[in-house]
Design a protein around this nucleic acid. Sequence first.
DNA 1: CAGATAAGTCAACATGACTGTCCTTAATTC
DNA 2: GAATTAAGGACAGTCATGTTGACTTATCTG
Lengths: 176, 176
Amino acid sequence: MTVLNSAAATQAAVSPLKVTPASPLFLREDEIRRGIELLYFGYTSMIRGADAILEAQGLGRAHHRSLYFIARRPGLSVGELISLLGITKQSLARVLNDLGNRELVEQRVGVVDRRQRLLTLTASGAALEARLFTELERSMARAYGEAGQQAVTGFWAVLMGLVPPADRPQVEALQG
Amino acid sequence: MTVLNSAAATQAAVSPLKVTPASPLFLREDEIRRGIELLYFGYTSMIRGADAILEAQGLGRAHHRSLYFIARRPGLSVGELISLLGITKQSLARVLNDLGNRELVEQRVGVVDRRQRLLTLTASGAALEARLFTELERSMARAYGEAGQQAVTGFWAVLMGLVPPADRPQVEALQG
DNA sequence: CAGATAAGTCAACATGACTGTCCTTAATTC
DNA sequence: GAATTAAGGACAGTCATGTTGACTTATCTG
């Protein structure tokens, strides 16, 4: 899956996407609103690409989020997944039951703590997640490519700044 | 509302938030996943701040989005709002009826096209939107301040790159 | 005038979140 | 070893927000 989008990469080297740069007074209301709006439209644009695949499977975005995090951290516990998603046990239960019934996700009893149920993708679950990821990747790789490497660093920095400091370790752990 | 967060602004000048910079191979899967995750957590972190205010009013995020765009573009038509939100007329109708019944939003017949209903906030609607905006602003201003001006430009560039080119004019028009 | 467009309305339905409660099993603590 | 705590599952009801489809009214445009 470590596939370079060569077209986007080429474009990155050649012509970074022009956007109006932030002004020295980049905390003015208009610039705040610009960030709010771009975050809203960017986020919804990115995830919209996977919706068609999900719908064909009779799954929704909630299922996608679970598949994504289980793929990212195989063997994570139900409690850890609840914490990442920020939803209740009961909300996650239905999603996890759906995924289990479709044999996309498997549970094993924890080794160190046998109360835990550790989650992994089955082969077909991994295949579906890969297809969904490819959709997100297409969108993100194009954006990275158009904006350029330096912009990506700024993109990450602002987004991490939006996360309350108390929650940052969890996000960083995911990416360790 | 053009309030500078002086603490954040000072911090911006002094010590931009350190994040692992994007590598030259910034299209590798890990870096794509990092973007996906930060976008998810950043977006949800930002909007979560307004939820308490909304809940106290008996309103939800759908109401907030309508209030936001009506505040941003006073006098926009119902059709324009549908297009911005990407939802159906029937979905918006319920939200707009709620906001009208609470006298937060008013409708006027269009001047150039009398079929249109042009939306504006009432005084109390504007007051509520301002409170909600202040919450988002707090979060965004802190992130801008921590990351620094240059990072903000990159943040905008990547997000605009995520938006399909066909949809970009609409986003830019909002910010004209 | 005929057809297209903007908007409103009613109905039925799906999804994904919530709360609350009860239960089982396993780990921890006294 | 007994009591408490923690992880998870199950069941029930509710709410917010989206969807389709069908129909109406007013207005604009060719």
